[in-house]
């Protein structure tokens, strides 16, 4: 923990610089720059359609940005330019894992299998790219056992261990969310991107989720970037909040700062007609 604390706040794990994404005539993201710092929980918030998920898809390689640079700095000093990598390479090499807004589990596989699929690349290497594993070499059996233990660890952590052998599609909604996070963690990421992890959860499940996210940061040293609408989650667990509106950053700072930012309030609540001028004035002042 102390080693982690010392690196905290020092360096950025992910730097997004001048990112733009255009879909035909629509500028979904317009010149966006922000940083995710190592060991922190960063929240990306904004009204519907602000471009949050597009940012995520650019970071995780599902979209190729029109312009801009996304660089990932790993603990051991290796750095990657994510915008140049294919989606699976972002997870495999750059160690950035993600979850989805609409949960994407392998519903016909059991919980354990879901977590084993997530360890595909490590197991693939251990099985000698299938050849040694097919011949029944011991190295694969050991690696397989190890992978099962890792899966057990994450099942326990997500309090899903008693349903380990059930199909993932059979789980209730909240448990599916936790399983998706556990699955993403099984890829061994340094940065975990969560797309609305609290969506559709009841308050109790929401609390459990907060606990899980905090422990992921504390025990595993993983930095988190999350999109969230649930302000109780955002304000409670995040260290740093970035606010988007119409593909542009309108505020950036700690939760208390963002909460009181007039532009954020205006973006979320809108303003009365007679206030438009004052807000515009404030915005222009802020921009200068």
């Amino acid at each position: 923990m102390s080693a982690m604390a010392s690196t905290m706040n020092n360096d950025a794990i992910l730097k997004v610089e001048h990112l733009s994404m255009r879909f035909g005539g629509l500028m979904a993201i317009n010149d966006l720059s922000f940083e995710v710092r190592r060991g922190e929980i960063t929240a990306l918030i904004g009204p519907n359609g602000a471009g949050k998920t597009t940012v995520f898809n650019c970071i995780t390689g599902f979209y190729k940005p029109t312009m801009g640079m996304i660089s990932m700095q790993q603990k051991d000093g290796k750095s990657f330019f994510l915008e140049r990598m294919a989606d699976f390479e972002v997870t495999r090499d750059a160690k950035v894992a993600r979850t989805f807004q609409n949960i994407r589990l392998f519903s016909g596989l059991t919980l354990l299998e879901n977590l084993l699929v997530a360890q595909h690349n490590a197991l693939m290497k251990a099985s000698g790219y299938t050849v040694l594993g097919l011949l029944g070499f011991k190295s694969y059996k050991d690696a397989s056992k190890e992978a099962t233990e890792k899966a057990r660890y994450w099942l326990e952590k997500a309090s899903l261990i008693d349903r380990a052998d059930d199909p993932a599609g059979d789980l209730p909604y909240g448990a599916q969310r936790r399983l998706e996070i556990a699955r993403a963690m099984c890829t061994g990421p340094e940065l975990l991107c969560l797309d609305e992890p609290a969506a559709g959860l009841n308050p109790r499940e929401s609390q459990e989720l907060n606990k899980l996210l905090r422990s992921i940061r504390a025990d595993n040293g993983t930095s988190l970037l999350l999109i969230e609408h649930d302000m109780s989650v955002v304000m409670e667990i995040s260290d740093h909040v970035v606010v988007l509106e119409y593909g542009q950053k309108i505020s950036d700072g700690d939760p208390a700062h963002v909460k009181n930012d007039p532009r954020v309030i205006a973006a979320y609540l809108g303003v009365d007609d007679d206030e438009v001028e004052t807000v515009r004035h404030e915005v222009e002042e802020g921009a200068n």
């Binding site: 699976f88 997870t91 495999r92 519903s107 690349n121």
Partner: peptide, 16 residues
């Protein structure tokens, strides 16, 4: 089998 269930999830887990 994971590919049969969900291809996008597969890619998000680093599977080529």
């Amino acid at each position: 089998e994971a590919l049969r269930e969900d291809e996008i999830a597969c890619r998000s887990l680093g599977i080529n």
